[in-house]
């Protein structure tokens, strides 16, 4: 699939400011960090969750648990894919039961990843509350799912592709909107 770069939506500073605002919103809504945990959806949700946790720690001067969730085994399109997605390890080394869990991902699109993540998370225990934080909401939902914390809303067409580059994985921080040629 060849992609043509159309526009940059966020640069490194933009990402930092968005995450800072989201961290404040998470703390405000949850009235602090009591019982709060962040769980990133692999792959790019994980470093974003780690950064949000660091920002929250700066605000509240307290640590909070961070985990990572691999949703491959919960996907609803496994038999339709022409490739076989790699299964990575889910690493949640704390009990989610009774916790206020914020799921973190880079982009929300159809909502199917979040649906899978909700099932995966519920198999680990029974959280008190599950919220959703995403860096980019690009619309086109296919399921009744919405994000509680959004870095940036970006209206897109289905032909377009949102590319999130995160330093920990891609060596740089920026979000691009590309178009299939």
């Amino acid at each position: 699939m060849k992609l043509r770069e159309k526009a940059q939506i966020l640069d490194a500073e933009g990402i930092r400011r968005s995450l800072t605002r989201m961290a404040h919103e998470i703390v405000e809504t949850n009235k602090g960090v009591d019982n709060l945990a962040l769980i990133g959806i692999r792959r790019r949700g994980v470093p974003i969750a780690t950064r949000l946790a660091e920002l929250i720690t700066q605000i509240e001067k307290r640590d909070l648990p961070v985990g990572s969730l691999d949703i491959t085994l919960y996907r609803d399109d496994l038999t339709q894919l022409s490739y076989q997605p790699l299964v990575y390890r889910t690493e949640v080394d704390f009990s989610v039961t009774g916790k206020r869990v914020v799921l973190v991902d880079d982009v929300i699109y159809t909502g199917r990843t979040v649906r899978a993540a909700l099932d995966a998370l519920m198999d680990l225990g029974r959280p008190a509350v599950i919220e959703l934080a995403v860096l980019v909401d690009r619309g086109h939902r296919e399921l009744p799912i919405r994000a509680d914390y959004v870095g940036k809303n970006v209206p897109t067409s289905r032909k377009e592709v949102i590319s999130v580059h995160i330093k920990e994985i891609d060596g740089e921080d920026r979000v691009l909107i590309n178009e299939r040629e």
């Binding site: 691999d70 085994l73 919960y74 496994l78 790699l86 299964v87 990575y88 390890r89 889910t90 690493e91 099932d119 995966a120 198999d123 680990l124 225990g125």
Partner: peptide
């Protein structure tokens, strides 16, 4: 290597209280 790496992820599923995924 692919089988071994995938097995490592499956090992995590086996350590859960509910040892079941819908795959």
């Amino acid at each position: 290597s692919l089988i071994l790496d995938t097995a490592a992820a499956m090992r995590e599923v086996m350590r859960r209280e509910i040892k079941k995924v819908p795959t």
